[in-house]
Amino acid sequence: MLKMNQINKVFRTEVVETHALRNFSLHVQEGEFVTITGPSGCGKTTFLNLAGLLETFTSGQYVLDGEDVSRLGDYQRAKVRNEKIGFIFQSFNLMPDLNLFDNVDVPLRYRGMRAAERKLRIEKALDSVGLLSRKNHLPSQLSGGQQQRVAIARALVGEPRFLLADEPTGNLDSNTASGVMELLHEINAAGTTIIMVTHDPSLATQSHRNVHILDGQVQSDNTNHVKAA
């Protein structure tokens, strides 16, 4: 599903060279729920940006869903992001002046889908996170947990092959957070691969597999036998 081989990412400024990832390799199978952990500055955000095709890397190979995406142009990369990847962010990143319906609509717009089909899909996605009745509300009228549910609906509406989640519960209280985690597990159970970056060790134990990154390299890769509740 996702194969990164010997990836290097170097940030250069006039004075220093920072190796954010060095010879980084990771394979994720279809249907897995992988958590990525590690201390600040270890390279987990860089990994996420590379995995999500938001940034390019210096060297190495990245194969996504059987397709080598290492050297794609901007247009192709955007297409891959749009069709195969769903993003969930710590701070939700909903567009404040679009209502829920329009927020979920954004990825579909870039896919050039007909209006009737979009409507059907958006309503289904909002329904699946239990917020269809509030589709005309603005994000600011919702609680944090609800906002993250909308963001999840937005990530799922394009039926991506996998979800990239960056501290999805970081801005939520523990009750709400566990609700969101539950939702993610349901999605995973339905077949979507999930990669989640977190610094919360308790969340790391709830996944199939936990990858720990240190200094831009995989330090440990453990398979969890505890299935989440």
Binding site: Y75, A78, K79, R81, F87, V106, Y110, R111, R154
Partner: peptide, 16 residues
């Protein structure tokens, strides 16, 4: 910027 970033993540390309 952040809206543009989100749009890029959601599949917008430069032309759009």
């Amino acid at each position: 910027s952040s809206e543009i970033g989100v749009r890029l993540a959601l599949g917008a390309h430069k032309r759009s």
